[in-house]
């Protein structure tokens, strides 16, 4: 547990020190949201209807940049090998990195919400529920994303491979998060938000445990 905390501290420190890059990725996400509206056309009703989908696509696209860079520091100068020499369970390294990624993605998702509200006129009073979905969805993206980032950071063509591997896997996250966000914005007469959040929780439970279990095999030499 203390190992996890120490690793967590390292990863949050890394995130903080690379905040300039996080801001650049955020700008990328926001500009993606802007571009989606150009693709659909300036009809307010249509934009509002698809706001949730655009928000999550924007977050998904920017998440690949965040995730692909998350093992950058470790891949340089064999820092990961050095970390693995320490008497620390590799699972602790994984969970710390995944938690830091989840935090970074949630922050980015939360910061993209105002952009969505302004561009698509998709305001909602239920901000805590929206933030909860952003948190669950970000966690769902970062659990498999962190594991695949660890792999692809050592492979050639990592910028292409990571989204290629990740996108098919996170289809359930995208579906559930878009549906839940959309229901929050447009109202939920049949009370379906709970079931979509439950799906997100299930995805998270499965992937956080499975990826934590398998991470050791990915980084072993």
């Amino acid at each position: 547990m203390t190992h996890l905390l120490a690793a967590l501290r390292k990863d949050f420190l890394l995130q903080w020190r690379t905040r300039a890059q996080a801001i650049a990725v955020y700008a990328f996400g926001a500009s993606a949201l802007l571009l989606f509206s150009f693709a659909v056309g300036p009809v307010a009703a249509t934009l509002r209807e698809h706001a949730a989908g655009f928000l999550w696509l924007g977050l998904l696209l920017s998440s690949t940049l965040t995730l692909a860079e998350s093992f950058h520091a470790e891949a340089e100068q064999h820092a990961l090998e050095g970390l693995l020499l320490l008497p620390v369970a590799p699972a602790a390294l994984y969970y710390a990195k995944a938690l830091a990624n989840a935090a970074a993605l949630s922050l980015m998702g939360a910061a993209l919400i105002p952009v969505m509200v302004i561009l698509y006129d998709a305001a909602t009073p239920r901000v805590p529920a929206l933030l909860g979905i952003v948190l669950l969805g970000s966690a769902g993206l970062s659990a498999p994303g962190t594991l695949y980032a660890a792999m692809t950071s050592q492979a050639r063509a990592r910028q292409t491979l990571l989204p290629l591997l990740l996108f098919p896997l996170v289809v359930p996250v995208l579906l559930a998060a878009v549906k839940a966000t959309s229901l929050i914005i447009h109202g939920d007469p049949m009370g379906q938000i709970r079931s979509w959040s439950l799906l997100l929780v299930c995805f998270n439970v499965i992937h956080w445990s499975l990826c934590g279990l398998l991470f050791e095999r990915v980084v072993e030499d």
Binding site: L147, Y148, M151, P168, H207, L210, C211, L214, R217, V218
Partner: peptide, 8 residues
Amino acid sequence: VATVIAFA
């Protein structure tokens, strides 16, 4: 590893 995750 990727196959196990994709299958799950």
